[in-house]
Structures are given as structure tokens and as C-alpha cells.
């Protein structure tokens, strides 16, 4: 006879008491504030404390705010430049540091590339403040060039990471096969290496773009007056009464970041492994 089926929950080897609850709380904790922020950006009232109905007025207000327009354009311009430059530099560096037998100085190159990840941003920020102040007083050159260089520098390690990961997953035998089929090194690079590397390059460029777009600390110290980016503009608004206009801008930035992460996730799903 088949024994009566017991209703006792089966013993699970992988579960630990309380872990599920904490994990659930963790996800709530991560998302509740963000969701609150997003919801209140659609609030018709001026204060966060009361929900006065759905409205897009704060988006309209932000759109019409000249300072916001100005900061947005500057942010996008800066992020676009920094991501293009840092991605080109990072791609070259990745080609020089992967799939190669260890050579003298390789560790030093790694350390150099990853250095912006290890040094606190505030330290880099004041260092750049000092350096650029010196250059400005010596040469009198003004403009966005300082921000572009600073952003390019700290975006390099972020662009480098996915490109390097992609390169390491690529078999050198493909390039060897191309060479065997009479391709010159230059042709091999354009016809074989680069097409295969594209997903990594795109991922790197997008990461760099988001990192540049999000930066507050270094921008705050390096910018001259009148060079507000969106994050520094938002930080500056803190001194005043915060209106849901900030929530609206935040929500838009949030959407952009989400979009980028989703695309990255998709790239990894499609091309990873």
C-alpha cells in the first residue's frame, strides 16, 4: 500500500530561518523610497505630505525651467563626450592588456586603470580643483574642457570592465584562423575582433554614460560658475524648499538609468557566455 502522503513541509536543505523575511525586507527597503519619489513626482499638490491627485505639472514646470534645460543639455553633452572618449581609450587599453602573456608593467597598468575606483571621489575632486585652478591661472583657458577630461578619466575603469570581460571570453583562435586565411593584422581587427567585441564596447560606453551623468562630487568641485549639470543643479536646490519639480527630474533620470541597465542586462543575456 502507498503510505498516506504527509502534509508536513519537506525539509529543505537550502533554507535558513528568517533569511526569507530579511531578504523580503531588503527588497522593500531598496524600492520603497524610490517608488515614493516617483509617485510624488506626479502629485498635484506642492507638498509631499499630501496626495492631491495625479498631475504632470511638475514635469511641465521642470521642462519650462531654463536652468533645468541648460543643465540637462550640459549633462548630456558632457556624458556623451566623456563616454565616447573613455570608451575609445578603454577599448585600446583592453586590447593591450588581455589575451597576452604577462609582461613587465601589466600589474601597474591594471592598478592605474582601476585607481579611480579605489580613491574616494572627494579626494580626486579636491585634487582636480587644485590642479585645474593652477592651470587656469597659468593659461587662462576656460570652458568645458576640464569637466570633459575629469569625466573621461573616472569613466575609463567603468568602460574598461565589460570590454575586458568580453575580450577575455573571445577565443584567440578566431584571429589566428583569420590570419591563416591571409588576413593582415589590420583586416583581422576590423573584420573579426571588432565585430565580436561590439557588445562589450556598447556596454562599456553605456556604463560610462550613466556614470558621467550621475556624477556629483567631482563635477561640483571642477565646474566653473555657470557650468551646472543636472546633479549639481539638484544639489544646489537643497538649500531652498524642495518642490516636487526635483522629484520629476529625478524620476526622468531614474528612467534613463533603468533603461540603460535593462539594455545592459539584455546584452549580457544575449551575448554573455
Amino acid at each position: 500500500m502507498i503510505s498516506p502522503i504527509r502534509k508536513r513541509p519537506p525539509f529543505s536543505l537550502k533554507s535558513q530561518p528568517g533569511f526569507g523575511t530579511i531578504a523580503g525586507l531588503c527588497f522593500v527597503m531598496l524600492y520603497a523610497p524610490i517608488i515614493t519619489l516617483v509617485v510624488y513626482s506626479f502629485n498635484a499638490g506642492k507638498y509631499i505630505s499630501m496626495w492631491e491627485g495625479f498631475s504632470l505639472q511638475w514635469y511641465v514646470a521642470a521642462w519650462g525651467n531654463e536652468a533645468v534645460q541648460d543643465a540637462t543639455i550640459r549633462s548630456l553633452y558632457l556624458a556623451a563626450q566623456a563616454s565616447v572618449y573613455s570608451t575609445i581609450l578603454a577599448t585600446m587599453a583592453a586590447l593591450g592588456t588581455t589575451r597576452t602573456p604577462p609582461f613587465r608593467g601589466l600589474t601597474a597598468i591594471y592598478a592605474m586603470i582601476n585607481q579611480p575606483l579605489m580613491v574616494p571621489e572627494i579626494v580626486t575632486a579636491v585634487a582636480l580643483l587644485i590642479l585645474f585652478a593652477m592651470i587656469k591661472s597659468l593659461t587662462g583657458i576656460q570652458g568645458m574642457v576640464y569637466l570633459v577630461i575629469a569625466h573621461t578619466a573616472f569613466c575609463i575603469p567603468f568602460a574598461y570592465l565589460p570590454i575586458r570581460a568580453r575580450l577575455e571570453g573571445m577565443d584567440l583562435i578566431l584571429e589566428t584562423a583569420a590570419a591563416d586565411l591571409y588576413a593582415t593584422p589590420w583586416k583581422t581587427f576590423w573584420r573579426i575582433t571588432l565585430p565580436l567585441l561590439w557588445p562589450g564596447i556598447i556596454a562599456g560606453a553605456m556604463l560610462a554614460f550613466v556614470i558621467s551623468l550621475d556624477d556629483v562630487v567631482i563635477t561640483e568641485f571642477v565646474k566653473s560658475s555657470g557650468q551646472e549639470t543636472l546633479p549639481t543643479y539638484m544639489l544646489g536646490q537643497l538649500r531652498r524648499v524642495i518642490t516636487p519639480e526635483i522629484n520629476a527630474i529625478s524620476t526622468l533620470l531614474l528612467g534613463l538609468s533603468m533603461l540603460v541597465v535593462c539594455v545592459l542586462f539584455f546584452i549580457e543575456r544575449k551575448f554573455g557566455k
Binding site: I2, S3, I5, R6, R8, P10, F11
Partner: peptide, 15 residues
């Protein structure tokens, strides 16, 4: 479904 006995004692659902 079914049972497993260890020296005559059921252990099917014992951790």
C-alpha cells in the same frame, strides 16, 4: 510517494 524504513523505522521524511 512510498516509504523508506531504516531498521524497521520509517525515515522517509526525516531530515
Amino acid at each position: 510517494s512510498g516509504t523508506i524504513l531504516l531498521r524497521g523505522e520509517e525515515i522517509s521524511h526525516l531530515p
